[in-house]
Design a protein around this nucleic acid. Structure first.
Length: 216
DNA sequence: AGCCAGGACTGAG
DNA sequence: CTCAGTCATGGC
């Protein structure tokens, strides 16, 4: 597992995630990117910034119609508008006390986040890792897709928590490592695309980046 | 013209 | 508990 990380890292280099300036922006981005191309999320976040709504009070005080237009590029406008509301209300109910979130035991904070309507396991873990620097491994569709092709076929249909437990059992609880690992998986999948067939010329198959495989 | 993107919720069986 | 249906837009 560590070897796979090393290959990815030497291939793509440090990714510098999360692509956002503030903790708050990371939280908003993690929500808006649900089943959505990141490019579209950047359009929405740029809109919110321009209108000064990338701020909890401003967002909650703005007219729904306006907010929906601004986040429209990210899709699912009605659902995501509500989800952002719920999430912001959660943080506001704790006075946006990020220091508190930083102190809370990981399991407790994760449970709190999962109780919020609109925050599922991946969004919760993205917030934990990228906004609060907690050592939580983020699993997503790319993770399952990639690893199910390089020897872990069981991951394809495995539930989120099972896959996460596996990775966290293989790797030390290092936020920096988890940060880069997830970002590198995304970076790799973005360039390989899910239609690339398995490579029969090397053990790494679709992860192979030697350029010698037929799959590449 | 479809198909897909850094998911999560809901309701039915 | 499992699972299809639903949600919306921009890029290729």
């Amino acid at each position: 597992m560590r070897r796979i990380f090393d290959i990815l890292y030497s291939t793509y280099g440090p990714q510098g995630w999360w692509p956002g300036d503030s903790q708050f922006e990371i939280i908003v981005g993690a929500t808006l990117t649900q089943n959505t191309a990141w490019h579209n999320v950047t359009l929405a976040i740029t809109n919110l910034k321009r209108e000064g709504l990338l701020d909890p009070n401003a967002y909650l005080g703005a007219k729904p119609e306006l907010v929906k237009v601004l986040i429209a590029p990210a899709g699912f406008i009605n659902i995501k508008y509500k989800r952002l509301r719920y999430i912001l209300e959660y943080f506001m109910s704790h006075n946006m006390d990020f220091e508190r979130f930083r102190r809370l035991p990981i399991a407790d904070l994760r449970s709190e986040l999962l109780e919020v309507n609109g925050i599922g396991p991946e969004t919760a873990d993205s917030i934990l890792l990228y906004a609060f620097g907690r050592p939580v491994f983020v699993v997503d569709a790319y993770t399952k897709r990639l690893f199910s092709r390089i020897g872990y076929s069981w991951m394809e249909k495995a539930p989120y928590d099972r896959v996460q437990e596996f990775f966290m059992g293989e790797l030390p609880p290092d936020p920096e490592l988890y940060n880069e690992f997830h970002a590198l998986v995304v970076a790799h999948c973005k360039v390989t695309c899910k239609k690339i067939p398995l490579c029969s010329d090397c053990n790494l198959r679709s992860l192979c980046i030697t350029g010698k495989c037929k799959a590449n």
